[in-house]
């Protein structure tokens, strides 16, 4: 069965790009528009990997990662942060929150797929 990836991004453009890149690589893609929505989708789907944006309305990426890691049943899901932010402070915050990896936008689809394969089985 193909691996399910949850992408969390408030930009429709980004969500569509991610869907294109990831489904081309054979992943099943489920999407959410912000952190809160991400938690809902997470509760309903079984993603093996999460790719999330940081800057989002309602619940941002940091809050989302903390929530995911705070739930024991989700602690083992690798989370890649995908964002235009590249400064060290934000990276650190994401790491502290429990992010598995960090990818700077605009992303290279192959590298993203590589990274996903690397953090998941």
């Amino acid at each position: 069965m193909s691996m399910t990836v949850l992408t969390v991004d408030d930009s429709r453009t980004m969500r569509e790009m991610l869907r294109l890149a990831l489904s081309d690589a054979g992943f099943r893609v489920v999407q959410a528009e912000d952190g809160l929505h991400g938690l809902e989708v997470l509760a309903a789907e079984r993603p093996q990997v999460i790719v999330t944006d940081i800057n989002m309305p309602r619940m941002d990426g940091f809050g989302f990662i903390e929530e995911v890691r705070g739930d024991p049943s989700h602690r083992a899901i690798p989370i890649l942060v995908l964002t235009t932010e590249s400064d060290a402070e934000k990276k650190n915050r994401a790491r502290m929150a429990g992010a598995t990896g960090w990818i700077v936008k605009p992303f290279n689809p192959d590298k993203l797929v590589d990274a996903i394969r690397r953090v998941a089985a």
Binding site: V30, Q31, V41, A44, E45, R46, S73, A76, A121
Partner: peptide
């Protein structure tokens, strides 16, 4: 431990915690 076994457990736990939804919103 081989990865394959790992995701199953949380998934099963999930299955019992709530109904499956596809796109919430």
């Amino acid at each position: 431990v081989p990865k394959a076994a790992a995701p199953e457990a949380p998934a099963d736990a999930l299955a019992s915690t709530g109904p499956r939804k596809t796109e919430a919103g």
